[in-house]
Structures are given as structure tokens and as C-alpha cells.
Design a protein around this nucleic acid. Structure first.
Length: 487
DNA sequence: TTAGGGCTACGG
DNA sequence: CCGTAGCCCTAA
């Protein structure tokens, strides 16, 4: 049985979810499967901002932030809407300097090598490439002058101390925080949060949406897997006046398009760029899917409750994201039931980093051959595939359900979802394999140095010591690599 | 967290 | 097709 959810509703949910604490890998996966169209750039940006926040959560900065900032710059560039703020330039500069100058701290034999390596990576790599490509979004006068200075220090150790001192005057974490705050203020809360907020303030709107009285029953869930309750309802709503959309631009804007697979939805939400805070005359025709049920339940409560509720199905959402990516990545499509009705399965579309760049030749984008072969598919097309797989059971269980007579809300009584052992096995097996990434010589060299310095077996220590060199490596990777090197 | 066996994708 | 580098799983 194939159930489809309106892509916009799915996007609203996703848009809400990305503001929740997510594992970075999942965030990367989500980003990588988003279509390169502009309409999702706000969503992508939210994801990227999330990654930045997670990066600086430990109170330090890393080169990953440079990568993310470059991706954001690329997004903004594609949007052609926003003038770059000085804050992103300042943040980029500060982080670049911090990531380089930190190697001047150590005075041991290796530090010179590591400093030179950092200058090569960051300033001759990233910055020069941007300059050559005439991408000025992140280039500032400050950045240029730092570049000269740090380059000079490569050849002249006598200026190390002064450069180091000067670099300490930059508060990289602070600069990044400032920038992220500005962006988040600009983007505003998610659409669902806005709706929830409006609901809380407006009883009339609650009535319109079919939320009658105070339905005490929160979403019942006893675990992440069987949390989905069946829902077979359809609310068709005429929203007369809703202060849902504020003056901010939200990313869940409905686009007009020919709906595939026989779907026709009446929902139309306009961007709130204009001052008119009203979405009058728009209709919402929600599909009867568990997510919508849950979201509706959530909307009944305050936005606070909404957050709490969505936290519970979050593991499901994460699984979906993982499932989607893995099912796309794995080429043995025929073996997977997920892929049966999935035309043109697209191999290895996901890339943990750099995947957000829509156009090729972007900095740091090592695009493999088959990635170029097929155009990226839309996120929602895929996520619906994954969902079909996930929710078949609950949908089957829907037949013959009855509205709960007690509370007057036209919702079916929650049903516990049965997951067969086989299905559980499949779900647990849906772990995405990381992208194959060959070790660079500088990584190998650094590993040798690390083992020499800290001893074989202290992989975590080594990884932490050279975190910026071992990009996207785990301590197990170091261990495995050492095994290879010494075989 | 680490060690070690097993698996898979890459590249010849 | 095969060898191997890189990745995953899991026991301890």
C-alpha cells in the first residue's frame, strides 16, 4: 500500500525537525539529499547553521566551519537574494586565522610542518580558490591582510610570536556565534512553530483547524518504534484569518507544480515577505498519514508541547533519513523492497560533506563520475519512498478505525503499531555506510607523528590532537589505518 | 575505548 | 575478477 504525503507538509515537518538536536551525520545526510533547487535553500541553510552550532558547542572552532560557511555562501550566491553580511566574512576570517595560528602555539619539531600544512590547506587551498574563482562572498580586506601575514610566517619564524598574539585578539567562536545568531534571526522560527504559536493565541483558529476543547491526551508512545499511531482523517480547512505568517520569510512556502502520483493538494501558503499577515482563503487538505496526525496533535498544544511531541518520533525521522540515503546509495536496488517502485534509483548520491553544492567544481567537491550521471532527485520523492516502507503496517492497521467519540476530535484512536521481527531486522540493518575516503599523505604523515608522540593504541588522543587534519575520521579509522600501514 | 575479525567498494 | 584499503561490528 502506498501512502503519500504532500511534499510541502513533509517539508514543514522536516523543517521543524532540523531545528531539533540531530546527529551531525544525519544532518549531512539530509543536506545531501535535498534537491539543488532554490526553494529549499532556507532548509539547507538551517541544516548548515545547525552544524556550525554543533561544531562550536565545545567552545572551539575547526576547519569544518570554513567548509560549512563556504557552503552557505554558495547557497546565498545561488539565491541571489541576500547581500552578504559582514558577519559571515568576519566569522570566516576569524576561523581561518584561528585554525592556522593555533599551530604556532607548539614549539616542537612537528609544529612547523603542521603550520605549513595548515597554510597550504586553508590559505592556498580554500582562500586562493575563492579568489581565483572570483567568489567574493567571504573575502574581506581583513582576510587578505591575514593571508599575507600568515604566509610571511611560513618563511620567517621570528614573527611567529607577534602573529600568534595578534591572532589571539580574534574571538573566532564569538564571531561565528554572532553570525549564526544573525542568520537565525533572519530565518525565523519554523513554519510549524509559527502555526503553533498562532494556535495558542487564537482560539478561533483552533476551531477552524478542528481542534476542539482541550484534548488532554498527549501522543501516547512507549518507544521510538511503536510510537506511530494510525490516522485516517482528512481535514479540509478554510483558514479565514490567521496570524500565522509574520513578516519573516519561511522556507515552507508552497510552490505550484504538477503533483505526481495523482496527488492534488489545495494547500497554498504565501511567503510572508509582505506586511500583510494573513493567509486568507487558503485551503489545507491534509493527507491521512501518521505524521499529520502527530503534527496535528502537536499543534493542539503549545509550541512547547509541539517540541516535546516531535522529539519522540524523531528517531523515526532519523531512520527515515538514513534509510533514504542508504537505499539510494546501495546499488543492489533489486534486493531491497524499498526500491521496488522506485524508478531510476540513484547510486551514491549522498556525500557527507560538500554535497550541498549544486553546481560542480565548487570548492572541495570531489564529485565522482556516477554522481554526475544522474540528476539529483527531489528530497520528498525519496522520503516518500522511505516512508512507504516505514509505515505500511500502520496504514494497513487503519482500515476500519473509528473516530474517538469521547473528546470530539475527529481523530482515530491510537493504535499500537506492530512491527514484525523481520521488519525490525531490516530497520536495524539500515545503517548508512560512510563514503569511501582515501587517506591523504598528510593524514598518513600526521598519524605516524601521532603514534610516535602518543604511542600506538591511544587513537582517541591522537585524533583529538590533530582533529583538523583527520577530517571525518574516527579513532577506529586511525586504528585501522595504522593496521594497514604496518602490514 | 580499543582490538580484531569480517565485509564491501574501489581500483588494477 | 581479485587484492586491498577503508569501513563496520562487537567482544572485552
Amino acid at each position: 500500500m502506498d501512502v503519500d504525503i504532500d511534499v510541502d507538509i513533509a517539508r514543514w515537518i522536516l523543517e521543524f525537525l532540523v531545528r531539533q538536536p540531530l546527529d551531525d551525520r544525519i544532518v549531512s545526510s539530509l543536506i545531501s539529499i535535498l534537491p539543488p533547487t532554490n526553494e529549499n535553500s532556507g532548509l539547507k541553510k538551517s541544516l548548515l547553521l545547525r552544524r556550525i552550532e554543533s561544531e562550536i558547542s565545545a567552545g572551539s572552532v575547526s576547519e569544518k566551519i570554513l567548509d560549512i560557511l563556504e557552503q552557505i555562501e554558495e547557497l546565498d550566491f545561488q539565491d541571489k537574494i541576500k547581500q552578504h553580511s559582514d558577519l559571515i566574512k568576519a566569522a570566516y576570517c576569524s576561523v581561518a586565522v584561528a585554525c592556522t595560528a593555533k599551530f604556532l602555539n607548539d614549539k616542537d619539531v612537528d609544529s612547523k610542518f603542521r603550520y605549513f600544512d595548515a597554510v597550504r590547506r586553508i590559505w592556498r587551498g580554500r582562500v586562493c580558490k575563492m579568489e581565483n574563482a572570483e567568489k567574493v562572498g567571504l573575502i574581506s580586506e581583513e582576510l587578505k591582510s591575514w593571508k599575507d601575514e600568515l604566509e610571511a610566517a611560513v618563511w620567517d619564524e621570528s614573527i611567529w610570536d607577534s602573529v600568534l598574539q595578534k591572532s589571539k585578539g580574534l574571538d573566532a567562536v564569538g564571531a561565528v556565534r554572532l553570525y549564526v545568531r544573525e542568520e537565525k534571526d533572519d530565518i525565523g522560527p519554523s513554519f510549524l512553530e509559527l502555526v503553533a504559536e498562532a494556535l495558542r493565541a487564537d482560539d478561533k483558529l483552533k476551531g477552524i483547524l478542528g481542534f476542539k476543547g482541550t484534548h488532554g491526551g498527549a501522543i501516547q508512545s512507549s518507544g521510538p518504534r511503536d510510537a506511530n499511531t494510525g490516522g485516517c482523517f482528512s481535514i479540509h480547512v478554510e483558514v479565514q484569518r490567521a496570524n500565522v505568517v509574520s513578516g519573516r520569510k519561511h522556507v515552507a512556502s508552497k510552490r505550484i507544480r504538477g503533483a505526481p502520483s495523482g496527488m492534488s493538494r489545495g494547500a497554498k501558503i504565501i511567503d510572508g515577505d509582505t506586511s500583510g499577515a494573513d493567509i486568507s482563503g487558503k485551503t489545507f487538505d491534509l493527507p491521512s498519514t501518521p505524521e499529520v496526525h502527530e503534527v496535528q496533535e502537536a499543534l493542539k498544544s503549545s509550541s512547547l508541547d509541539l517540541k516535546a511531541v516531535v522529539k519522540d518520533p524523531l528517531p523515526d525521522a532519523l531512520n527515515i533519513a538514513d534509510t533514504v540515503v542508504s537505499s539510494i546509495e546501495r546499488k543492489d536496488a533489486g534486493k531491497q523492497p524499498v526500491e521496488e517502485n522506485h524508478v531510476g534509483a540513484n547510486p551514491s548520491i549522498a556525500e557527507s560533506s560538500g554535497a550541498v553544492q549544486a553546481n560542480e567544481g565548487t570548492l572541495g567537491n570531489h564529485c565522482s563520475e556516477h554522481q554526475k550521471d544522474a540528476p539529483r532527485q527531489s528530497l520528498m520523492a525519496r522520503s516518500s519512498t522511505a516512508r512507504t516502507f516505514e509505515w505500511d503496517d500502520s496504514v494497513d492497521a487503519l482500515a476500519g478505525d473509528s473516530p474517538n467519540p469521547g473528546n470530539g476530535v475527529q481523530l482515530p484512536s491510537p493504535k499500537r503499531r506492530v512491527v514484525s521481527p523481520l521488519k525490525k531486522y531490516e530497520i536495524n540493518n539500515m545503517k548508512k555506510r560512510r563514503k569511501f575516503k582515501r587517506w591523504s599523505t598528510s593524514e598518513e604523515e600526521t598519524l605516524r607523528i601521532g603514534v610516535e608522540k602518543y604511542g600506538r593504541g591511544n587513537w582517541k588522543v591522537i585524533l583529538n590532537a590533530y582533529r583538523d587534519v583527520f577530517d571525518e575520521r574516527t579513532e577506529v579509522d586511525l586504528k585501522d589505518k595504522w593496521r594497514n600501514l604496518t602490514r
